[in-house]
Design a protein around this nucleic acid. Structure first.
Length: 213
DNA sequence: CTCCCGATAT
DNA sequence: ATATCAGGAG
């Protein structure tokens, strides 16, 4: 995609939503990390529903360890993949206490040493909690990057690298949120809302039919 | 590549 | 009924 078109792409998303924000609920950096770990292959709405009562009681790794895996499972059962997520959150909390003095590391490699934390989750934490211009490529960015032609790639990492190359510096900081929100509500997996899309003219994809229900 | 997995939209 | 959802680990 041409540079001017990419600039327009972001400019229009920015015009529509000047201060894009994530939709996961959290009360501090630790709960943000936990919320993102829990959000794997689950909807934000579903995760928020489960974490509301959880984070009311549990806001630190210390408290999470005290709660224990079995009780944590009760809180997060409505989210998918809860067995492995509960195990990961407890172990991750132990590691934060033992190896990081209870603090969340500001480094991607260190973050990825935590169980349940891969590159995407690490990038989210770095961006939201520490203000770094990282772009976390989740299912929405991967689909949108390929579908629109903005940043085609065979793997999420391919798409991430391409996005970092083509995204103008002025848009880097919030690119992640502009793209994820656009992917979630407009450039959807099942029924993309092309007719009402603000970057329709900057997009290489056209829905086969806009008349289907 | 497969497995983990319940809730929701289609 | 099935695809999809702020993926990661084995």
């Amino acid at each position: 995609m041409k540079k001017t078109k990419i600039h327009d792409f972001y400019a229009k998303l920015k015009e529509q939503n000047p201060e894009p924000k994530g939709e996961l609920h959290y009360v501090n950096t630790y709960t943000l990390l936990v919320a993102v770990v829990l959000s794997a292959q689950a909807t934000d709405v579903g995760v928020n529903k489960a974490t509301k009562p959880l984070f009311k009681k549990i806001k630190t790794p210390q408290k999470m360890v005290e709660l224990g895996e079995a009780k944590l499972k009760d809180y997060i059962k409505s989210i998918g993949l809860y067995n492995s997520k509960a195990k990961n959150v407890i172990k991750l909390s132990h590691m934060l206490l033992d190896d990081y003095a209870g603090k969340i590391p500001e480094d991607r490699d260190e973050l990825q040493k935590l169980p349940g934390v891969g590159r995407k989750t690490a990038n989210v934490v770095l961006n939201i909690a520490f203000g770094q211009p990282t772009i976390a490529v989740d299912t929405h960015l991967f689909r949108l990057g390929n579908r629109t032609g903005l940043a085609p790639g065979k793997t999420p990492l391919d798409v991430e690298k391409k996005l970092e190359k083509v995204t103008p510096p002025e848009f880097m900081r919030h690119a992640h949120h502009w793209l994820i929100l656009h992917g979630r509500y407009v450039c959807k997996a099942r029924k993309p809302a092309c007719p009402s899309c603000v970057v329709r003219d900057e997009c290489g994809f056209k829905a086969k039919s806009t008349l289907d229900s």
